[in-house]
Design a protein around this nucleic acid. Sequence first.
DNA 1: TTGAATATATTGTATTATATATAGTATGTT
DNA 2: AACATACTATATATAATACAATATATTCAA
Lengths: 233, 233
Amino acid sequence: MIKMSESRNLTHYLVNELGSAIVKGDYSIEDGLPSEAEICERYEISRTATREAVKMLSAKGLIVSRPKKGITIQAKEKWNMFDTDVLNWILMSTPSLESLRDFTQLRLAIEPEAASLAAKTANESDIKRIETALFRMRKAEEGLDDALDADIEFHSSLLLASQNPFFIQLRSFIETALRVSIRFTNQLKGVPTANFSDHNAIFLAVVARDPEKAHAASRKILIEALDLIEHQL
Amino acid sequence: MIKMSESRNLTHYLVNELGSAIVKGDYSIEDGLPSEAEICERYEISRTATREAVKMLSAKGLIVSRPKKGITIQAKEKWNMFDTDVLNWILMSTPSLESLRDFTQLRLAIEPEAASLAAKTANESDIKRIETALFRMRKAEEGLDDALDADIEFHSSLLLASQNPFFIQLRSFIETALRVSIRFTNQLKGVPTANFSDHNAIFLAVVARDPEKAHAASRKILIEALDLIEHQL
DNA sequence: TTGAATATATTGTATTATATATAGTATGTT
DNA sequence: AACATACTATATATAATACAATATATTCAA
């Protein structure tokens, strides 16, 4: 049996193998995946585990399996990009400036609106959470905390403060994408580490209950990042 | 065996049963779901099909299953709200003004930004597609086409024109939510059917390659809808 | 009280058998 | 020849059984 020490179990191992292979483009849409039987052979895994992996991948929108037709790959538009597994596979397989831009464009849609909502509806514990993250960012500037973790926590806490379940659910998405794409942003010349005062401006606007200002402050950060990326393209 | 004529197969039937039950709150987070064995008994289904359903639900972030611990329900924040199945279950089980507001707030984040992108990057076929949808909306005003379908197609075609895979993936999300929530919007007094000229304004801005105007036109529609909803709350 | 050994319940994996759905082929009728 | 019907082969769908791995709970000794 193949090494799979990293994975929780055989099914998850296979989900990862097939999922990343599909996203990488190892299987064409016309040909689809090999049949269940072939997958079993190739990975030396029972049909039970194989079928469970297939079910998980079809639940994520990557594939569809039908009797006689076999396992076919879905059009990219059907993939659940907001599933953290799928997103991970995509970012890992094709870590490009284009996908970084796509991701930042989405953040530009989401985060200013979330900041605006937060300024309207954040409660005390929400605000305290944002403040804590901001404090971590300040310490990170002095090298006393991890800059990426602090940055993620800040943006995540703002989404949480929006009180909107859809925005809240995007926290894991943002976290995943930030973690993967950080290597690229770091390689862009002149990309500053997350600027404390810019982030502080969002916090102050939220505390002041000023949605427009919070929106603008959040937008400022992301527009700068986006300009930088598009300048490189 | 239980009636399941609607479903493609046993596994999908069970996924639907359990998924909607979980979302509805039939199982508490502390107690979790019954064990595999119990589910088999209760639904008179083999363990194979049961396990495959469990795998699909865990792929959607609803549950986690571990040896000896059984099947536990994930915190709501882990659920893949952007999975159309999950979204459907949520909207069907608790079709409230609150969730309609949450959904519209998300649209307010996404759609104006998508319209702005569309104005920048839409190609000829994108524009033609938007125009076609707009034409359907006009005909719908005269009762010659389905108003909801036309409306959905319009907003969907704008997302597609953004050329951003994340926005494009949200098409199925928007479609699902619009289809479910339409019953409520229709019940709100004074809610007009989708206004043709407002939608036309977006189209014209895209054709004119004016991102700001496209953004504003899209935002106008959604702000109006949101105000109406919040007025009712 | 603590900690290690053990029992036990639950999911994980494998195997075999049968059922069902469907693309493709053959057959037969008009 | 055209078209509908029936048949066949094949892949997935379902079931049943057996055993393995794992983590909780219990027991018992130090």
